[in-house]
Design a protein around this nucleic acid. Sequence first.
DNA 1: TTGATTTAGTTAGCATTGCTAACTAAATTG
DNA 2: CAATTTAGTTAGCAATGCTAACTAAATCAA
Lengths: 144, 144
Amino acid sequence: MAERASPPAPRAVADRLHSAAIHLLRALRREDRALGVGPAKLSALSVLVFGGPRSIGALARAEQVRLPTMSRLVSTLERDGLATRTPDPEDGRASRVHPTARGRSVLRQGRARRVAMLARRLEQLPEADRALLARAADLIEGLT
Amino acid sequence: MAERASPPAPRAVADRLHSAAIHLLRALRREDRALGVGPAKLSALSVLVFGGPRSIGALARAEQVRLPTMSRLVSTLERDGLATRTPDPEDGRASRVHPTARGRSVLRQGRARRVAMLARRLEQLPEADRALLARAADLIEGLT
DNA sequence: TTGATTTAGTTAGCATTGCTAACTAAATTG
DNA sequence: CAATTTAGTTAGCAATGCTAACTAAATCAA
């Protein structure tokens, strides 16, 4: 035994990886509900907190949504006290979006909740498997 | 060099894996747009096609949504000719949902599109990395 | 057996998040 | 300087999530 499996066909790997990602996120998604902040807001906030303040357009590109969608999302973030808008001194058309202290705090909590749930499961794996998953995460991020 | 990294802390791995899954699905999601069938419908259809016909309640549990959400989703699947509802002979309250031929076809196409996109990227990886990702997919599915 | 409870599903109504179309206003370009 | 491009907004629609409140069938208990 321990015979090498047949070489992994890209399509088969793609299919399995696709399913796994869907199921993983579906399970984690439930953790967000307690937060009272929707997934789109959390995700945009995450870009602002970890990537720094930026324009609404840049945020839209980062989140892969259209400008009007992000425009409205930023309005609700502002209304909820999670972000603020300041005029861009260089460009009279643009504004810059910043997370507020409360925004950072909410993000930290949400992220902690999701990550904690996943971490609890990862703890039950042998260390070698955990290392493999860490490497897999990097590979996936590198796929572009 | 090639020194062993510090043991992978579950929280750190969880964080990276979480991000990777989000980014992967966000990229793949775009492929679905050409299909004209939303993600919730595709996902429910996938359960029906690969897991077999079942009640609306069972479908709701599989999709982790509430019963009214699934009830409406099935109505639209029916309206779109992607699924049908038949009465459950055992239980007068329940109905069973079946995919139609067209539902199967649409699902196959959508899945093929997403998987093809991911497979194209996986092809550019060394075989060892692909094998690693295949193993990772299994580990993730097993986390539950 | 009947009355109470539970379970399956629906309907109504709301919030979020995606889109396109059509607009304003500032910046850039020819 | 006029024409075009770019940043953002507003309006309106569709999909998808929820809870509350309902109907009807099934099950349980007395």
